[in-house]
Nucleic acid binder design. Structure first.
Length: 832
RNA sequence: GCGAGAGUGGCGGAAUUGGUAGACGCACUGGACUUAGGAUCCAGCGGUUAUAUCCCGUGCGGGUUCAACUCCCGCCUCUCGCACCA
C-alpha cells in the first residue's frame, strides 16, 4: 500500500476533532501543564516561522499528555493592528472582514498541520467579548493611578499616522515600516510601568532557570537601573538651580562645567539678556531639528555652546560655566550633566575641544595622572585627591560619604535612575480597542462606568486612504453622554496599542468563554502560570516585558495571585532560506501549504524539528525536507511490510528470553529499542533536543531494517519486531502523529497513541554481556578489546591491556610508568 | 564601550559528570535490484596516504591532567541586544 499522507492526515484530523480529543478541563486531581505558543497576527497565511513555532509546541503538548499531565494547549489571534487597516485600504475591504477571513483561513491551515489545540478556547482580540475586559482593566488601572495622561514629545511615525512606544522605535526607525520616527508634542495615555521597574528587575531572578540568559539580560538592559545621586548646583545669581543625576558623585570635586540638553527648560531663562542668546537659540534649534538617527549616531561630533551663565559647585565653590551640549539627552536623568573632564570620556573630549579646564580628583593605584599629559579620561577606581575632607578615601567609600553629605546638607540625595520609560498606549489608528474615556466640559476627563462596557468599535466607518483614523469623523462614535453628569460629551478616539491585548490573552485562555468576568478565578488559579512558553526572540523585550508588567498590575487590582506569567521560555530560532531570513520582501519564502500538499504535514513537522535544535536558526533546504519525507516513507514501508506478522503491543515489552532466543542480533535489537526510549525521553525532557530524539528513532529504524527479513521468519522474531515497531510508533507519535496513528491502527493497536502512556525502558535491557574497552597509550587510542561486562577488576584490565599486541608495539623501548583503568570504558598505559 | 550567545567535515548538526571526535540527516561515491532509475535496499564517506592499526585534526596561543570539543588563562572572528545613559 502506498503512503498517502493527504488521505491519512485528513482522516485522523477528523477523528481527533469529532472525538474532542484535545479538549481539557481544570481538574485538581491531575497535575497540569500549560503549553503555550505565541499567538499569530492574522496576516493571511501561516508562514514557516509559525510552523516551526507551533510544531515545537505541539510535540511538547503531546509528549506531556503522554506523560500523564492534564495539558492546556490553546490557540488564538492577535487580531487588532495596523496591517489589517492598511490591507483594508489597499483592497477596499473592511478591516474586520479582512481579519476574520484571514483567521478562518489560518485556522484551517493550522488544523491541516494536526496541532493538538483545544479550539473551544480560541480567542480573537478584536471582538468586544475580548476587549471589553481590557477596557475594564483600563478603568481599574486609572483608579489605581497606573494610567495617566501626559503631554510630551512623542515618537511619531508619519507613515503609520500614529505614535509609537519607545520599545517600538528601533534605531530611530518605526519597527513596522522603517520610516524615520519624528518627535511630536502630543497628549497621550501612559501606563505607569515604571512603578514596577524595581519588581520587574528583581523578579527576573525567579526566571533564571527557565528563561534564556539572553532574554534575561535584554530585559535587564532595557529596564536599566542606575544607582547614583542627584546633586543641586545653584546658579551664580542664586535665582535658580540645576539638578543633575550622576552615578559618579565621587568625582564631584572634579566637576568643572555644566552640560545641558538642548531641550532643558532652563536654557531660555539662562540666556535671557545675554549677548550670546541668539547664537544659543540657533544652536538649540539646529540640534532639536536633527532627526533621531543622526542625533544619536555614535559618529556625531560632540558640540556645544556656552550660555553665558554660571552655576556653583556646592563642594568646591568653583564657578562652573553652563554649556548646552548636543550629546546630553533630555529624557534621561534630569537632562543636565555635571561635566568631569578628567573622569568621563565625553566630558574629556568636550573640554579638549573648547579648552575647558581639567582637574584630576581620582588617582589610580599605580600611576599619578596629570591633566596636561592625559590622552583620555580615567574612569576606573582609585583614591580621591584634591577633594577636601574626602581626599584619601577610596572612590567607592567616597560615593557613600558624599551621598551622606548631600543628604545631610540638603544639597541633593541618593537616587535611582531607570532607563525604562512609561508605556504610551495611545494609538491614533482605527483598528484597535477604544480607550474607555470621555471628555466632558463640566467634569473633565471621565472614565467610563464598568457597566457601560464594552465601548464597541463601530464597524460602519469609512477608512481614510491615508491611514488616518475615521473615528474623529464619526459622530455616532464620539458623541456621547458624560458618565458622571450625563451632559453631552466627547469620547476619546484614540485606540489602545495592540500590545495591551497580547499582555493578558494567555490568562483568558484558561476560560475563554466566561462573560461575567475577565477570568474564571478557579481556572486561572489551576492553569497559571504558563509552564512552557514558546516563541520568537523578537518579543524578548516588548511583549514579554508588557506581559510581566500586566500580571503584576492585575495582581494589584485583585485579579490574579501571580508574580510571573511564564515559568519557562523557549525562544526558537529563525527560519532561513539560502542563509537569509525567510521574508516576502526577499522573495525567499517557502509556503507551508505547498509543502503540505507535496509531502504531508507529518514530513513538514518532522523536518522543522529535525534540521536544527529549536533555539538555533535553521536553514530550509529542499533536499532536507526530502530527507525527512524519505524517513517517514521508510517507517511506512517497514510497518506495512511487516504488518501481516506483527501486532501492536506495549512498547519495550518483548522479554529478554525472547531476544536471547534470536541470538546476539536479538539481544542487540532489544537493547537498541530500550536505549532509544531512554535517549528520546532524556532529549525531550531535559533540553527539548528534538533533533537528537528523532535521530535516535532513526537509528532504531535502521536497526530494524537490518534484521527484519530474518526475524520475520520466527515467532520470537515477530514478537521482538512487534515490540520494537510499537516503540518506534509510540516515541515518534508526538512528531508525526498521523503516520503513527495510522500504522498503529494497521497493526491492531486498539486505543489511540495520543492517549497512550509515554514508554518506559528497562535499565537491565541496556546491559551488554561484553563491553568494548578502549586501549590507549599516552592518551592515544591504540586498540580495542571486548571484555565481559562484569569485568571491573582494574588489575585484570591492566593485564589485558599490557598483553595487547598493539599496545606492546607502541610501548617498545619505553618504560611503563602508570596504567589507568576505568572499568567499562578504557585502559590508558602511560609510558615514556 | 557594556551585556549575552556562538565558532566542530563539503553542508545541517552529535558527543550526560573530562574518557573511542564527527551520532543522525543532506550531498557525494560504489554495489544490488531493474527495460529504466531522480524509486528502493546495502555499503563507503574529516584530512593525509598506494594502503594502514602511521601522522594531523574541534577558531588561535598557552596551561592543568594519565586523558581536553569539554576545565583554566590570554587572544581572534561572527551573531544578537543595549548604547554619547552622565
Amino acid at each position: 500500500m502506498k503512503y498517502d499522507p493527504q488521505h491519512i492526515e485528513t482522516k485522523w484530523q477528523e477523528i481527533w476533532e469529532k472525538g474532542n480529543h484535545f479538549h481539557c478541563e481544570a481538574d485538581a486531581a491531575k497535575p497540569k501543564y500549560y503549553c503555550l505558543e505565541m499567538f499569530p497576527y492574522p496576516s493571511g497565511n501561516i508562514h514557516m516561522g509559525h510552523v516551526r513555532n507551533y510544531s515545537i509546541g505541539d510535540v511538547i503538548a503531546r509528549f506531556k499528555r503522554m506523560q500523564g499531565f492534564n495539558v492546556l494547549h490553546p490557540m488564538g489571534w492577535d487580531a487588532f493592528g495596523l496591517p489589517a487597516e492598511n490591507a483594508a485600504i489597499k483592497h477596499n475591504v473592511h478591516p474586520a472582514k479582512w481579519t476574520h477571513a484571514n483567521i478562518d483561513n489560518m485556522r484551517l491551515q493550522l488544523k491541516r498541520l494536526g496541532y493538538s489545540y483545544d479550539w473551544r478556547r480560541e480567542v480573537a482580540t478584536c471582538i468586544p467579548e475580548y476587549y471589553r475586559w481590557e477596557q475594564l482593566f483600563f478603568i481599574k488601572f486609572m483608579e489605581k493611578g497606573l494610567i495617566y495622561r501626559k503631554k510630551a514629545p512623542q515618537n511619531w511615525c508619519p507613515s503609520c499616522h500614529t505614535v509609537l512606544a519607545n520599545e517600538q522605535v528601533v534605531d530611530g526607525l518605526c519597527w513596522r515600516c522603517d520610516s524615520v520616527v519624528e518627535q511630536k508634542d502630543l497628549t497621550q495615555w501612559f501606563v505607569r510601568i515604571t512603578n514596577y521597574a524595581e519588581e520587574l528587575l528583581a523578579d527576573l531572578s525567579m526566571l533564571e532557570k527557565g528563561w534564556p540568559e539572553r532574554v534575561l539580560s535584554m530585559q535587564k538592559n532595557w529596564i536599566g537601573k542606575s544607582i547614583g545621586a542627584e546633586i543641586v548646583f545653584p546658579l551664580e545669581d542664586g535665582a535658580d538651580a540645576i539638578t543633575v543625576f550622576t552615578t559618579r558623585q565621587d568625582t564631584v570635586f572634579g566637576a568643572m562645567f555644566m552640560s545641558l540638553a538642548p531641550e532643558h527648560p532652563l536654557v531660555e531663562k539662562l540666556i535671557d539678556g545675554k549677548p550670546q542668546a541668539e547664537d544659543v537659540r540657533q544652536f538649540v534649534h539646529r540640534i532639536r531639528n536633527m532627526d533621531r538617527i543622526a542625533r544619536t549616531s555614535d559618529t556625531l561630533e560632540k558640540e556645544g555652546i556656552f550660555t553665558g551663565a554660571y552655576c556653583v559647585n556646592p563642594f568646591t565653590g568653583v564657578k562652573m560655566p553652563i554649556w548646552v551640549a548636543n550629546f546630553v539627552l533630555a529624557e534621561y536623568g534630569t537632562g543636565a550633566v555635571m561635566a568631569v573632564p578628567a573622569h568621563d570620556q565625553r566630558d574629556f573630549e568636550f573640554a579638549a575641544k573648547y579648552r575647558l579646564p581639567v582637574k584630576v580628583v581620582i588617582q589610580p593605584e599605580n600611576e599619578t595622572l596629570q591633566p596636561e599629559t592625559m590622552v583620555q579620561a580615567y574612569d576606573g577606581p582609585g583614591t580621591l585627591v584634591d577633594s577636601g575632607e574626602f581626599s584619601g578615601l577610596s572612590n567607592e567609600e567616597a560615593k557613600r560619604r558624599i551621598a551622606d553629605w548631600l543628604e545631610r546638607n540638603h544639597k541633593g540625595r541618593r537616587t535611582v535612575n531607570w532607563r525604562l520609560r512609561d508605556w504610551n498606549i495611545s494609538r491614533q489608528r482605527y483598528w484597535g480597542a477604544p480607550i474607555p474615556v470621555v471628555y466632558c466640559d463640566e467634569c473633565g476627563v471621565v472614565p467610563e462606568k464598568p457597566e457601560n462596557l464594552p465601548i464597541i468599535l463601530p464597524l460602519d466607518v469609512k477608512t481614510h486612504p491615508d491611514g488616518r483614523s475615521p473615528l474623529p469623523d464619526t459622530p455616532a462614535f464620539y458623541e456621547c453622554r458624560c458618565p458622571k453628569c450625563g451632559k453631552k460629551a466627547r469620547r476619546e478616539t484614540d485606540t489602545m496599542d495592540t500590545f495591551v491585548e497580547s499582555s493578558w490573552y494567555f490568562m483568558r485562555y484558561t476560560d475563554a468563554g466566561i462573560d461575567t468576568a475577565p477570568f474564571n478565578e478557579k481556572a486561572l488559579k489551576y492553569w497559571m502560570p504558563v509552564d512552557q512558553y514558546i516563541g520568537g526572540v523578537e518579543h524578548a523585550i516588548l511583549h514579554l516585558l508588557y506581559s510581566r508588567f500586566f500580571v503584576k498590575a492585575l495582581r494589584d487590582i485583585g485579579y490574579a495571585d501571580l508574580a510571573e506569567p511564564f515559568s519557562n521560555l523557549l525562544t526558537q530560532g529563525m527560519v532561513l532560506k539560502d542563509g537569509a531570513k525567510m521574508s516576502k520582501s526577499k522573495g525567499n519564502t517557502v509556503e507551508p501549504s505547498e509543502m503540505i500538499s507535496k509531502y504531508g504535514a507529518d514530513t513538514v513537522r518532522l523536518f522543522c524539528l529535525f534540521a536544527a535544535p529549536p533555539e538555533r536558526d535553521f536553514d530550509w533546504t529542499e533536499s532536507g525536507i526530502e530527507g525527512a519525507f524519505r524517513f517517514v516513507s521508510r517507517v511506512w514501508r517497514l510497518v506495512t511490510e511487516l504488518q501481516p506478522g506483527i501486532r501492536a503491543m506495549e512498547p519495550c515489552s518483548a522479554s529478554a528470553d525472547t531476544a536471547d532466543a534470536l541470538g546476539p542480533k536479538g539481544k542487540e535489537l532489544r537493547l537498541k529499542e530500550h536505549a532509544t526510549v531512554k535517549k528520546a525521553t532524556d532529549d525531550i525532557t531535559s533540553r527539548f533536543q528534538f533533533n537528537t530524539a528523532i535521530a535516535a528513532v532513526m537509528e532504531l529504524v535502521n536497526a530494524l531494517y537490518l534484521v527484519k527479513d530474518e526475524f520475520q521468519k520466527s515467532a520470537a522474531g515477530r514478537e521482538l519486531l512487534s515490540s520494537a515497531v510499537s516503540t518506534t510508533l509510540t516515541v515518534l507519535s508526538p512528531f508525526t502523529p498521523h503516520l503513527c496513528e495510522e500504522l498503529w491502527q494497521s497493526i491492531g493497536g486498539g486505543a489511540m497513541l495520543l492517549n497512550a502512556s509515554w514508554p518506559t525502558f528497562d535499565e537491565k535491557a541496556l546491559v551488554r554481556d561484553e563491553v568494548e574497552i578502549v586501549l590507549q597509550v599516552n592518551g592515544k587510542v591504540r586498540g580495542k578489546l571486548l571484555v565481559p561486562a562484569g569485568e571491573t577488576d582494574k588489575k585484570n584490565l591492566e593485564a589485558l591491556a599490557l598483553a595487547d599486541a598493539n599496545v606492546g608495539r607502541h610501548t617498545v623501548g619505553l618504560t611503563v610508568r602508570k596504567v589507568i583503568a576505568i572499568p567499562g570504558k578504557l585502559v590508558n598505559v602511560v609510558a615514556n
